[in-house]
């Protein structure tokens, strides 16, 4: 129970604060076929602070390259929810450059 609460708290903290990163990965649950996830990739790509978005049906992830070094996590989370899927975990990536 304590472990669950701690995990939940960390997730809430991660979700609620703007993230400083140029690349992030989001674990997304519920993704199925190509036709289903294309809208998710396009919708994320339309966000103002997202330069590009790429989906992996194999890894169940979405990789986002941001325009600046901060990104609105809540908006990204809501975009995933609005696409009909469940965002699970977000991880900043080391700068690939």
């Amino acid at each position: 129970m304590k472990r669950l609460l701690l995990t939940y708290s960390l997730l809430v903290l991660a979700w609620s604060n703007p993230l400083s990163a140029e690349q992030i990965e989001i674990d997304v649950h519920g993704m199925t076929c190509a036709f289903c996830v294309d809208s998710l990739q396009r919708n994320l790509g339309k966000l103002p602070d997202v330069e590009s978005a790429e989906v992996s049906l194999k890894l169940k992830k979405v990789r986002i390259e941001t325009v600046g070094d901060t990104v609105d996590i809540e908006r990204i989370k809501q975009t995933v929810l609005d696409s009909g899927f469940t965002p699970v975990k977000i991880s900043p990536l080391p700068d690939a450059k």
Partner: peptide, 18 residues
Amino acid sequence: YRLSPAVYPDWGIEPEWA
């Protein structure tokens, strides 16, 4: 049942047959 691809690529959206 997804006939192909048997395994999805790591990244990107690939056409499928079902």
